[in-house]
């Protein structure tokens, strides 16, 4: 009895220690807003190229998607009686990535429905930023892809009567699938081809991606895994069809691969937490992209690959828990 009493007084006399879950190191610059700002800066070259190539098509889509995403975030947060967290800029980033993954020719309702579905079904129903399982922008895009198949399909990218030169051609991957014609490597690199707004220029994606990696706003393992898997499988595919014009380099520079690898797959919320897990995640995306591109019914597979790997992210996290230094540690049951 006396012992317990003594313990009690001791615990009361101790200085108040706060017990809180990690992370314990706080840094003023490490905020959500800061990371999102980094992504926006990294998207700048892609935005510039898309506006230069697609003119008003790009401008319309970008403004519409960003506005709708921010509005959707505000409305859904208010519906949950929360303070709308617009100031952390995550809705802006979702809007930008959604806009850049849509075809410029897509009608306005595609952008509106995509934004609402992306923010609503992709993020808010799971509890908002940090809880989402899937990449919100890709959920929005997949949603409109299934809903408005004719406005999002391969032929919808093309409008012969358009004054903008890029829009009058078929996208490189569609051209490859339908006529077997190969687009020159240089044009894929610079980006004056048709396609989703942000995916055309490999150069812009590489520049922005490099910035993200240097700032460490994106984990390098993910793009490395994606490029490695896609490149390796593309080389195998080339070896199986010798003489094909669409080489491994085309596979790497063409389509949404680089845009997806640097901006979409690296979303820190919906990708795995451990370095090993991130690498596996990247490899999975790269392999699925090649599978869907070569065999699938859609010309491009980046979106579906990202969604599929997002869905196994919890399992990857579970099975790649790193061993602490000096481990193995016995697990308490």
């Amino acid at each position: 009895m006396a012992e317990a009493e003594a313990k009690k007084t001791e615990s009361q006399s101790r200085p108040a220690l706060e017990v809180a879950p990690g992370p314990h190191v706080h840094h003023g610059a490490l905020t959500t807003r800061r990371m999102m700002l980094d992504v926006i800066i990294a998207l700048a070259p892609v935005l510039l190229v898309s506006v230069a190539v697609f003119r008003l098509y790009a401008l319309k889509q970008i403004v519409l998607c960003v506005a709708c995403c921010v509005a959707a975030e505000a409305v859904f947060d208010l519906m949950r009686h929360r303070r709308p967290k617009i100031d952390n800029l995550s809705a802006v980033v979702t809007g930008l990535i959604l806009a850049l993954s849509l075809p410029g020719t897509a009608p306005w309702y595609v952008a509106v429905v995509g934004s609402a579905a992306g923010i609503g079904l992709g993020k808010v129903v799971f509890g908002g930023l940090g809880h989402n399982i899937f990449n919100p922008a890709m959920v929005g895009r997949a949603f409109v892809m299934i809903c408005f198949a004719s406005a999002m399909g391969a032929t919808a990218y093309q409008d012969e009567t358009s004054a903008v030169h890029a829009v009058t051609q078929a996208t490189p991957l569609t051209q490859l699938e339908q006529t077997g014609e190969t687009t020159e490597l240089w044009r894929l690199f610079v980006g004056n081809t048709n396609g989703s707004l942000g995916e055309t220029s490999a150069l812009a994606c590489l520049l922005g991606g490099l910035y993200l990696l240097i700032r460490r706003s994106a984990a390098w393992q993910i793009p490395a895994g994606v490029l490695l898997a896609t490149g390796a499988l593309a080389v195998v595919q080339n070896a199986m069809n010798p003489g094909a014009d669409w080489t491994a380099a085309h596979h790497l520079l063409g389509g949404a691969l680089l845009f997806g690898a640097f901006y979409i797959a690296t979303d820190p919320v919906s990708s795995p937490l451990t370095p090993m897990g991130r690498f596996i995640f990247g490899l999975g995306i790269g392999a699925l992209v090649m599978l869907l591109r070569v065999f699938g019914g859609y010309p491009e597979g980046v979106m579906f690959a990202v969604l599929l790997m997002n869905s196994v992210t919890p399992l990857i996290n579970r099975w790649t828990i790193p061993r602490p230094v000096g481990g193995p540690v016995e697990r308490k049951t």
Binding site: I133, A142, L291, F295
Partner: peptide, 18 residues
Amino acid sequence: VAGLLALAFAGFTRVDQG
């Protein structure tokens, strides 16, 4: 979530034909 998973698996459409 099941719906979103089905959305992701819709990407495999026509892979069997290929």
